[in-house]
Amino acid sequence: MTVRTPARTAVTGRTSAPRKAGRFWTARRRDHLVGYLFVAPQLIGSVIFVLVPLGMVVWYSLNEWNVLAGTFDFVGADNYRRLAEDPKLPSVLTASALFSAGLVAVNLTLALLLAVLLNQRLRGTAVFRTLFFSPVVVSLVAWTIVWGFLLQKNGGINGLLSVVGVTGPNWLRTGGGAMFSVIMVQVFKNVGLNMVLFLAALQDVPASVYEAARIDGAGAWRRFRSITVPLISPTLLLTSIITVVGSLQVFAQIAVLTQGGPGTSTTVLVYYLYQQAFQFHQFGYGSALAVLLFAIVLVLTLLQWRLRRRWVFHEA
């Protein structure tokens, strides 16, 4: 990357190349050009569909746009002032935090549990692996709609529970129940992905390490904690980053299952943003919320990346 003098490039240039490079188009320069050309689609796409819109979000957040009347007015920091004073925002942020924390905790725990179970030397694990993974390929909205039926007061879940003599709650109509339901529906949908990644990581842990530990008298839990977890920590880190960022984007599940209710108990930031922008048509305020969302994701990712040093045993 530091080579600049054409003379030196000419000396090291590949003489075996059939087409001799012109004086300007040295092999090195041609390589640069190819590099730029290869990344160009992604780069231009990122500029048009990511960076420019990101800048525009900031600009919109300083304006108010009335769709029906067709007006677009500069309002300065009004939308941010509103953000600071919005009485609903604390509950929205709480719901987002609850959802993300719950989702990440349950998802990673269950994924790890399933991966460990499937990593036992048992016949038929491939079948179970397929079953646990199958919701991943079911369309998200179809999955959510079905759970919407199952979670009704007289729906399938409570029906199943009544078979075992338990009276189930009215899942989607109580604050805690609704949040729990939304989390679990999302976990069951996607835990298969993390499970597969964990399983691949587990299979890379050499059996000899376990043998040695067993000889040293370490119990199963001890082996799991002191060997398995550290050895798969890079995977744990990456999956947790992806799961956290993903949890902040959850929309379809909320829109289909609870519409943010009951009360505002499942109105997470993304859903609130959608409501403000596309239901109430306050695109300016919606944009201010989007800026907030971006800031949160940025901070969380940086934090996790920081933690990596303390947390991760070795780099893959």
Partner: peptide
């Protein structure tokens, strides 16, 4: 520069993209 995209939930840019 490209990695920034990894950090942006699609909801953040949906309004400007829509416009």
């Amino acid at each position: 520069v490209i990695l920034v995209g990894l950090l942006i939930p699609s909801e953040v840019t949906i309004v400007p993209l829509f416009q």
